[in-house]
Design a protein around this nucleic acid. Sequence first.
DNA 1: TCAACTCAGC
Length: 703
Amino acid sequence: MRFLLTHYRAFSTRIAVSPNSQICYFARLGQIKNARKVFDGLPEKTVVSWNSIISGYFQNNQHREAQILFDNMPERNIISWNGLISGYIKNGMITEARKVFDKMPERNVVSWTAMIRGYVQEGMIREAEVLFWKMPERNVVSWTVMLGGLIQECRMDDACRLYDAMPVKDVVARTNMIGGYCKEGRLREAREIFDEMPRRNVVAWTTMITGYAQNNRVDVARKLFEVMPEKNEITWTAMLMGYTQCGRMEEALDIFEAMPVKSVAACNAMILGFGMNGQAEKARMVFDRMWEKDDGSWSAMIKVYERKGFELEALNLFASMQKKRVRPNFPSLISILSVCASLASLDHGRQVHAQLVRFQFDLDMYVASALITMYIKCGDLVKAKQVFDGFTPKDIVMWNSIITGYAQHGLAENALQVFHKMFSSGIIPDDITFIGVLTACSYTGNVDEGLQIFESMRSKYNVEPKTEHYACAVDLLGRVGRVNEAMNLIENMPVEADAIVWGALLGACRTHKKLDLAEVAAKKLLQLEPQNAGPYILLSNLYASQGRWNDVADQRKNMRARSVNKFPGCSWIEVDKKVHMFTMADSSGHPEHAVIMKMLEKLAGLLREAGYSPDGSFVLHDVDEEEKVNNLRYHSEKVAVAYGLLKVPKELPIRIMKNLRVCGDCHSAIKLIAKITGREIILRDANRFHRFKDGLCSCRDYW
DNA sequence: TCAACTCAGC
């Protein structure tokens, strides 16, 4: 406060500034009330005073007050009228601007240019062009505004013609052309204009540098950067991002450290740079050391955590952002929504939904789809459908989200119902739609219907089946044991079968114990994805189930030789808005470890009493029976179930998440646990949902 | 002192 006062005193006493410029000064600072005070205190208000205060209100997005003042002006000049046009345009009111333009007593080149600029800003290029060719005289600014409109619409060839026709080309027009060419990757043409420029400013240099950096020529960008006469913060940031976006973090860091002023934008770029290149800790270090953060800093850090699988960190950071009373912005809310979806954290998801509503972000179609996906992944289909139904018009992504959602929950009938409704309401299904529909049929064993839809994709819907769709078809056939037909289908594919297709066949072979075809599929898979642990594990599980321990050992050796690691299984559960994570065979880090272990012992006893015997064929290792039983008991999904039985109120279902597919033995065990304890248990694994109740699972043992 | 124009990040 004291700062502001002294600042103001210095300003008003240093020079004899006119009151009108004081009005502008305050308006620019966003202190429109102070500007108004100066205006109201004027004994004599000239037309310039009126113009200044009106412009001030428009600058501060208060068009009503500006309008009232304009209507009450004692006299107006052409600048007043032009100010009204540009004011409306600043506030996005193009129709009002045009009304003023049509009724004003006289127009000059500024009036025309302002109006054209308004159309360009709204993307109404046709209207802009009509006015441009109609205007009685043009100057370099009018030409440049029109040029900018064409470039904005990516009409570079039209822009080039207009540019050639310009009688005078100034720095702005040339720089704009350079930027336009760079965005299209036409670096040679951009460079030609740059080289021909009689006078270059920092902006031109920066545009050229950005152009090279965004088109995989970061070293050329660096050369220009080294020789340019003067750099500003934007230049440094552009160079920095050139390096971060191609993953050259050492050079990015050099630039960052050499920067004279580390702007917030540059820091944010470093956060994203480190984070997206797999160095989340370093990103966090930059974040923590920042002198001041903007909302971009927070959303960048949250995005990094979300994309790199640090879901809990993302949630924590989002919470501390709110504790610091930083208003969540659009990108951070979207990131956190996706975190809620992957964690299946329904409580957090609901909170974020409420915030989206409060800030009116939920009116966005993209957000609606993200919300639907979140509710589906959290297992709340009713709420997902509610968001879906409440939003019109619906785009294809929304339809696809809900269809895929039903598929993951094993509700083929609902998925097909929505699919037909979508088609009859005039939305053309795309390839994603069919993945959802075919998966739905596959998960429920609707083989004939699924195959029928697969056959009709091209003929009825004009959608060319891709490898993913073939994978679904292979899955459909494979699930019911028609493995040879599946193999036939693969051999007659018009495109090369990929890992997903072979994976589907391998899964079927495992279920139906078709050892010979399994080996074929697994070997194909190993060729395509030598680093993927999946085929090694499937194959060695297959050998293990037949007691071929030597072959199992060979697979393990192969895995080690190619340094393939089995992705560790982990499960988690949300209790009281807190996520509890368990990894296989180890819950010792959990504060309630002892109680959990006791519960697991008790469950094992209950299962034995119910006549349950563990199915050892699901275990990978060649170990004796007793240890096998132990390994099964401590699979992460069982630990999470035990914790859920301890913590979740009796009337509520227990919701568990697992990062891999549920293990076959756990699946049998949880069915029984649900029956013995009378609880409903919902398990989301990597592929789909399992709802266990009364000794049965909603997947009907297909998964 | 009042009206029309280009560059980075979100």
